[in-house]
């Protein structure tokens, strides 16, 4: 039975792996993360060299501007809070850590795509943040950082008074 599983599965494994790699390949060349329509899809890889391109490395990061705060999301499936180190130095955020191999005892290996990884990524933030008001939440394998902007970087509302 063990042999049969291997034989049948191997037939599809190559195609499956190819498909996965293709998916990842597009991710790496699409600066907007794949949500763009097809017409721009073909041109963006060439334009991307001119502007700053986000390169998909591990973990994947996304940065959002929420007005009063910056929200940074990182895909870190299977990691614990203690495995991740976060540092903010001025306006540079550094995320580092290691996802260790989690091969269960006594199992034979058929396929390994979730390689253990050691990482360190730095992001320069677009504005100053109040490090005292930073919070990080780890949920479902996604680390979400909320960094409140420092007072001078906060969007300001200017009230309009009538002159009468």
């Amino acid at each position: 039975m063990l042999m049969r599983f291997g034989d049948v599965n191997r037939t599809f494994a190559a195609m499956d792996e190819l498909r996965r790699r293709m998916d990842r390949l597009f991710d790496e060349y699409e600066p907007r993360g794949g949500a763009s329509p097809r017409s721009t899809f073909f041109f963006e890889p060439f334009e991307a060299g001119l502007s700053s391109r986000t390169v998909a490395t591990w973990p994947r990061l996304s940065v959002y501007d929420k007005g009063e705060a910056l929200v940074i999301a990182a895909d870190v499936p299977g990691m614990k809070e203690s495995d991740i180190k976060l540092e903010i130095d001025q306006d540079v955020l550094t995320l580092s850590g290691e996802r260790k191999a989690d091969i269960p005892e006594g199992y034979a290996l058929h396929k390994r795509e979730r390689a253990p990884v050691k990482f360190s990524r730095s992001v320069s933030l677009p504005c100053k943040v109040d490090t005292e008001k930073a919070s990080a939440v780890l949920k479902d394998g996604v680390l979400t950082l909320t960094l409140a902007k420092s007072p001078e970087a906060q969007p300001r509302k200017i009230s309009v008074k009538s002159a009468s």
Partner: peptide
């Protein structure tokens, strides 16, 4: 889960969903 609210400054990878199919052997 949907992406955090706000203006996206940089998004890596696809925000899309996951799907994968395997052939289950006999036994």
């Amino acid at each position: 889960a949907s992406a955090p609210e706000g203006n996206a400054l940089a998004v890596e990878g696809r925000p899309g969903d996951f799907s994968r199919t395997f052939l289950v052997p006999q036994g």
